[in-house]
Simulated scan of single mutants.
Amino acid sequence: MKTVAELLKLKDLDHQHVHTIAPQQMVLDALKLMAEVNIGALPVLENGQVVGVVSERDYARKVVLKGRSSIGTPVSAIMSSPVITVSPQHSIEACMGIMTERHLRHLPVVDDGKLLGLLSIGDLVKEAIAEQSDLIQQLEQYIRGE
């Protein structure tokens, strides 16, 4: 199974750039950015370090359901923290296990304290399906004696 580093290299150019937000920015800013670039979560960076992740789920549960305002609420008030991260050396399988166990949909990739990327559950499922498809093709070729 591939590593996180290999998966990040395979992401198309539009999804290799990681959009981030600062903890003091307003929730409305995060929502606008997520809508603009069609993503569901943003790593929260402070002094170059990942201090949280803010997602659509955080917005729904911690702003809408609690009657808060997205204009006057800072990202730090609703972000998920502490952050669970992975390194580029982690396997896709290990990431899937972390996401399943912790009920996460997004996983920041950090190396030496630097944010390298953000994996979504969709990224991991897509890779798992591709690997299974390759294995099926290899087995079919083996059965046919090719």
Score class of each variant (00 low, 15 high):
Met1Ile: 04
Lys2Leu: 07
Lys2Cys: 04
Leu8Gln: 10
Leu10Ser: 10
Leu13Lys: 15
Asp14Thr: 05
His15Trp: 14
His19Val: 10
Ile21Glu: 15
Ile21Cys: 14
Ala22Cys: 10
Met26Ala: 13
Val27Lys: 11
Asp29Ala: 13
Leu31Lys: 13
Met34Asn: 10
Ala35Asp: 12
Glu36Trp: 07
Val37Cys: 15
Ile39Leu: 12
Ile39Phe: 13
Gly48Arg: 01
Gly48Ala: 04
Gln49Pro: 03
Gln49Asp: 07
Ser55Leu: 02
Arg57Leu: 02
Tyr59Ser: 01
Lys66Tyr: 05
Gly67Asp: 08
Gly67Gln: 09
Ser69Pro: 11
Ser70Lys: 11
Thr73Cys: 11
Val75Lys: 03
Ser76Leu: 08
Ala77Gln: 14
Ile78Pro: 06
Met79Phe: 01
Ser80Pro: 05
Ser81Phe: 10
Pro82Asp: 01
Pro82Thr: 04
Pro82Ile: 04
Ile84Lys: 04
Val86Gln: 09
Pro88Ile: 15
Ser91Gln: 09
Ala94Ser: 10
Gly97Glu: 10
Thr100Ile: 07
Thr100Arg: 11
Arg105Ser: 00
Arg105Asn: 00
His106Gln: 02
Leu107Tyr: 11
Val110Ile: 11
Gly113Trp: 06
Leu116Cys: 07
Gly117Ser: 10
Leu118Val: 04
Ile121Gln: 00
Gly122Thr: 04
Lys126Pro: 02
Lys126Arg: 15
Glu127Phe: 01
Ala130Trp: 00
Gln132Ala: 11
Leu135Trp: 03
Leu135Ala: 03
Ile143Pro: 01
Glu146Phe: 11
Glu146Asp: 09
Glu146Leu: 11
Glu146Pro: 05
Glu146Gln: 11
